[in-house]
Design a protein around this nucleic acid. Structure first.
Lengths: 309, 309
DNA sequence: CCGGTCTGTCAAGGTTTTGTACAGATCCTG
DNA sequence: CAGGATCTGTACAAAACCTTGACAGACCGG
């Protein structure tokens, strides 16, 4: 296990989303952390401390008083927790999310292959928005815009690839650790021929924020592989996402079969035209966040955002 | 093994992207390096020193304070070298990079779809290894192993997808900001039909560490899109990567054409069998890091910072 | 409605950390 | 041997931290 790793208070603050003043207050009042000190007297924190602060934030976000949250967080130093959540307590409270402006800036950055600018937009969004808001108000609409602009010929394939890879990197960054914990398992995959996995990743993040545990196979996965993985992992939920129903149709039989043992759902634009026949396959046609919410509040409380990279 | 290689401070500075003054400060304050001296007293550095400086830079870029970054970087490479012990501040003796063990652990994690375990392995590697070492000693060999095990039927497609998505997320995370700066531009893409972009990402990271500026289009990019992007972006280098020469052959004409205006290279396993005819297309058949090194130390300035916004 | 407590935030005043700069002497290479 | 690259040592200023103490809003029992 990694122990040493020494973070100063500023870095801990950034990673946990809690202001340095508050961290010191929690230490003084509740003895939440006992950082070691540098020769000069600076506090040095470990990664376990980071987990503890995040846990405390989550307890507060779920309604506990700070003192109680601290007591719980201090006790659970080696519990099976390890979830990542972050309350927007730190930093500037103001700064509302202007999703439209953000999408516009993102679009301009893509037009010019300006990777740094695009990353900066996402950085700013992550600072003020929850993952849910980022997904449903920026990522998903933005993907739609890209698709429409591509159909109209306003966007080259190169630009679309550029944007996809950039977003994929960020979303997979947020996904780190989404296979952890012991919530219900969800197995996510795209059918053969489908290469648009961003919506599926978004869906996985939305599920993760609600306590699910994610197994992600991604784009273009052969049917027998999906079936095999489902047999191995026995997930509570299987989600297959495609942009077109034509890609889903060939595996309708297998899906119906799987639906007898797991909950099975199809998502993506292709779900709108998919014919489930008389099987138990769910159609998820709405926003990933809404659908994730609709799939049941398996999670104890609303998981919040996610830490920085 | 790689003892010799006497770099003077200016050369080390250029390669690592750290000013000479700062290198001396780090030596004095943290004992980061212990260069040998020329008869006249000039500092002479080894390639290991270069690695250590890069590692320290990356830790700083990820938010650690200089002193802590130095402690980690110094602890990293005590390795099998008969050199004197570096005076690390922490008591821990030394966490040398054991690439073989890391790959084995990674493989086991993949076998069991154990995402947290796999992430943990990578976390530990990133703490003690430079990007170069991670790529050439872990990522690339690991990809080969996965390919071989897949051919032998030891690994399911689902497991291969799982591993790919996990690694892709981590590598793209390291890639954040690689389009920044004003080094020479490199445009990276896979030809139509090629969906293995991990090697290409690795190559981009290796180039980035040497000061290049990366524009990444990724897998399965239509030929005309690659050509169009090259016309728009006017990169100094275009890299097309594929696992099979059959995917490269159809675009040989376009590549030869592009090679008249840019440096053009093909990479990946497909480069070994690619026939460049009499065009100027380079064949990159070796390790991404070695090839990136061979493409010239274009890096005249920093090229490292991945600072926060 | 009122005093009391809890909790996040802020300010003042001082210290540590850290990147950068300068000055004068020395080394190395064409 | 000239000019560029380095060496040592010292200095400096911005950024980040530390401690102490206070304060305002929310919440609560009376």
């Amino acid at each position: 296990m990694n122990a040493a790793s020494h973070l100063r208070i500023g870095e801990l603050s950034r990673r946990a989303g809690v202001s340095p003043e508050l961290l010191r207050a929690w230490e003084r009042r509740y003895d939440l952390l006992r950082p070691t000190r540098s020769p000069g007297g600076l506090r040095l924190y470990s990664l376990e401390d980071l987990e503890r602060v995040r846990l405390m934030s989550r307890h507060i976000a779920s309604g506990l008083a700070a003192r109680e949250a601290a007591a719980l967080a201090a006790r659970a130093s080696l519990g099976p927790e390890g979830d990542e959540a972050i309350a927007g307590t730190g930093g500037a409270p103001g700064a509302a999310l202007d999703a439209g402006a953000a999408r516009a800036r993102l679009g301009r950055a893509i037009d010019h292959f300006d990777e740094p600018a695009a990353q900066a937009v996402i950085d700013e969004l992550l600072a003020v928005a929850t993952v849910d808001a980022l997904l449903s108000e920026v990522v998903v609409p933005f993907l739609h815009e890209v698709g429409e602009r591509w159909e109209r010929g306003e966007l080259s394939v190169a630009q679309e690839h550029f944007a996809s890879n950039l977003l994929r990197g960020r979303l997979l960054g947020l996904a780190r650790g989404w296979g952890r914990g012991n919530g219900p398992r969800a197995l996510l995959a795209c059918p053969p021929g489908e290469r648009h996995d961003l919506g599926l990743i978004a869906f996985g993040l939305a599920l993760r924020a609600r306590g699910w545990r994610i197994d992600f196979l991604g784009s273009d996965t052969p049917v027998e592989s999906i079936v095999g993985a489902a047999r191995t992992l026995r997930p509570a939920l299987l989600v297959v996402s495609a942009a077109s129903a034509e890609l889903l149709a060939p595996m309708a039989v297998e899906l119906a079969e799987l639906a007898r043992e797991h909950e099975v759902a199809v998502a993506g634009a292709g779900a709108r035209d998919f014919d489930p026949g008389d099987s138990e396959v769910l159609l998820l046609t709405r926003d990933p966040v809404m659908e994730a919410e609709g799939l049941g509040g398996r999670a104890r409380e609303s998981g919040l955002g996610d830490g920085l990279a």
